[in-house]
Design a binder for these strands. Sequence first.
DNA 1: ATCGTTTTTTAACATTTGTAAAAGGATTCC
DNA 2: GGAATCCTTTTACAAATGTTAAAAAACGAT
Lengths: 187, 187
Amino acid sequence: MQIQQILNQIYPLPEASLAQLLACIDEVSFPRKHLLLKAETIEKKIYFIKKGIVRAYAYQNDTEITFWFGKEGETIISMKSYVANQPGYENIELLEDCQLYELQTEKLQTLFEQDIHIANWGRKFAEQELIKTEERLIARQFSTAAERYTDLIKNHSDLLRRVSLGYIASYLGITQVSLSRIRGEKR
Amino acid sequence: MQIQQILNQIYPLPEASLAQLLACIDEVSFPRKHLLLKAETIEKKIYFIKKGIVRAYAYQNDTEITFWFGKEGETIISMKSYVANQPGYENIELLEDCQLYELQTEKLQTLFEQDIHIANWGRKFAEQELIKTEERLIARQFSTAAERYTDLIKNHSDLLRRVSLGYIASYLGITQVSLSRIRGEKR
DNA sequence: ATCGTTTTTTAACATTTGTAAAAGGATTCC
DNA sequence: GGAATCCTTTTACAAATGTTAAAAAACGAT
């Protein structure tokens, strides 16, 4: 997925503004299992996924909980770092070899003050991430794990192929045993 | 709570920009039990709460689920309407007589394109709402209902006084019977 | 192909949570 | 101030989910 497409999808930018934004972005690659972001640190960069799949997880007591998957076209970001300059909760681990676009957020902050189009791009970016987060929250509050699993099959069936069920069970908020029972009932 | 304080808390605005924003805002009052926002409609306004407390709820099958409480200084908004001009999920009911500041979002959208300070105000607004939503999601995914109830007592003890336990149980994602059991164990 | 590792399923049992109904308290409104 | 309503707790039982352990299946590297 090309970076121009990702950026313009968020909010179409005039040529000059787009060029300024692109100047803050590099392309980088990391292997499967690489830990891209560490929890409890302030992250200075955000990433857009060109190719690959990743998961965000954190610890509850001793056990790891996976709370997000990201794939092509999506953004890897520690919102707490980005918005409030505070340490975030997420560890981000690559589940496949990945190609990423890396954006220095400090440079971005400067552009927000200088260019109204980029400020509105930043607004739309936050708004769209907000809608996604809200949808996740609503799904969690209103659907059972079984329903969310069915949704996952319907709308993100590639996840099943690319991610092991232990992570998916954790993401759904149930044990792997429970997920196995749900899968069993569908047969 | 004064509107200038609410607005400037989000992002400090120059005099002229603030004046433009204030020109889009009216003060309104509604009684307890008034239904301020209806689900499945596109809402053209957002509200800031001057005085009072409200809840957002939606239906899961036949049963009402309360998924948010708002009080003084907070924003009542259908994010789906605001961001995507699509019908939202929230019904908003006033739990007390309320004084609100009402903002016409259409006018706001125009200002975003004209004034970089207001564009950045809008960006910060979305970012801060995003952090709040993310924190709610994390709390839900990482804490048990009992832990979230303890949190509620610690950080929002006024809710216990102002809101009946049935709504709080629903908000915590458990039945009222379960909440009663949790409360019983603490004695 | 095979050994070793990882992933997924199955089983038995314990624990938690939900459901429905009743009873006890508190509050509201003539 | 008292009937009616609403809110909260309690009880008994049913259903769902978790825990632990073991077996089965799938996958990877040599």
